[in-house]
Design a protein around this nucleic acid. Sequence first.
DNA 1: CGGTATCCAGTCCGATACTG
DNA 2: CAGTATCGGACTGGATACCG
Lengths: 121, 121
Amino acid sequence: MKETADQARLGPEHRELLGQVLDKWSLEVLDRLCERPRRFNELRKAIPGLTQKSLTTTLRRLERNGMVERVVVSTRPVGVEYRIARLGKTLQDLIDALLSWSATHLPEVERARERFDAAES
Amino acid sequence: MKETADQARLGPEHRELLGQVLDKWSLEVLDRLCERPRRFNELRKAIPGLTQKSLTTTLRRLERNGMVERVVVSTRPVGVEYRIARLGKTLQDLIDALLSWSATHLPEVERARERFDAAES
DNA sequence: CGGTATCCAGTCCGATACTG
DNA sequence: CAGTATCGGACTGGATACCG
């Protein structure tokens, strides 16, 4: 082969998976569940801006992908507890790294944005 | 403090930043540009399914956030080269980790999905 | 070659109302 | 408490045509 192979390092399936796991709210939900199990409304309150509908959708998707477990607690009235699953734990370090990266580099990114916005005359 | 603080570990700005950098196509574009600088159409061909419009949008956003640099090459006809910027390089290890995670755990995730889909009667 | 402009269909998301 | 159902508006993404 004379040229670089240019093979895709990930197919559509990988893109889909990362999209489902790293999406807008999933990161934060997973992060919270890594700390400890949480109830539905507890999660809702812990993450400002997250609506009930989006939380439901996010949790279903994470559950389907084996990232979290849904446990019905037989109290009165019934409660539902979500906890991180084994497969979800394998993401914990990655999530921490992402949040750290974001915290560290946000100021630089903001400066880059200002420069860019100023340049586009 | 008697209860956990429940403070958000990241505000909306961090969510936005991660959303712009980790989105569907950005990961793959950044990954390619980490290897070496690329031309517009070279990128386009290297990433199946990515349309011209989406590539343009993705590159603009990455440029604005200081992740990539756009260099006009004075050839005939003119070419445009994209290269990873210093700030973008700080993501390289993270991106590698994400792609590896995806490659490693996709089979398990698929089994989890089958189980879930079978269970929901 | 590397875009921009426009249109248009599909999807997402919040608000609201209702349920076991 | 923890959802489901539904609806309208915003946003996204693809197809196409054209430009420097």
